[in-house]
């Protein structure tokens, strides 16, 4: 089966939406899809929590760096959350699935979700900070091997 791989580095709602659109389409085109979430992208897979982390810096950063697929900022016109709120309404009006809905759709299509272990560690996350159904935790070599075997690989 042809492989489609995508690194989700960004935690911006608009960019993550683009990643999910491509990933779900690739899965619908009979491709094996791997989504590798790293850095801010991990926020998509984090549970909605006040904060997490093991020390004060991590706790402060993870409070600022809001968790949860429903709380992603926009890469433009974020305006302290007013932008994403408007965008969510516009998406709903146009029947475009939300990021949470895309996440469920992606799981249903058998898309593999991989979380980056490096970000995981230096941000002080634990497995309990993440939603259920994550396929694995892995590093760059795992992704690069998928890229070597893959037909298409993207980074967003």
């Amino acid at each position: 089966m042809e492989k489609f791989n995508i690194v989700v580095f960004s935690g911006d709602m608009d960019k993550v939406l683009a990643a999910f659109i491509l990933a779900t389409t690739a899965a619908s085109m009979n491709m094996e899809v791997n989504m590798f979430f790293t850095f801010w992208g991990l926020n998509v897979l984090r549970k909605k929590k006040f904060t997490s982390g093991k020390n004060i810096l991590q706790k402060l950063m993870n409070w600022l760096n809001k968790s949860g697929a429903s709380r992603l900022p926009l890469s433009k016109f974020n305006m302290l959350g007013a932008g994403p709120a408007m965008m969510k309404i516009m998406m709903k009006q146009a029947k475009v699935p939300s990021i949470e809905e895309f996440l469920q759709l992606a799981k249903g299509l058998g898309i593999k979700m991989v979380a980056c272990t490096t970000t995981f560690s230096f941000m002080g996350f634990t497995e309990k900070d993440f939603i259920d159904g994550l396929d694995s935790f892995a590093g760059a070599a795992t992704f690069l091997q998928l890229v070597r075997e893959g037909k298409i690989s993207y980074f967003i």
């Binding site: 779900t24 389409t25 029947k95 759709l105």
Partner: peptide
Amino acid sequence: FGLLCPMPIVKTAE
């Protein structure tokens, strides 16, 4: 009807 990309394709595949 009324669905935008990628939903018609995702639903077709299903």
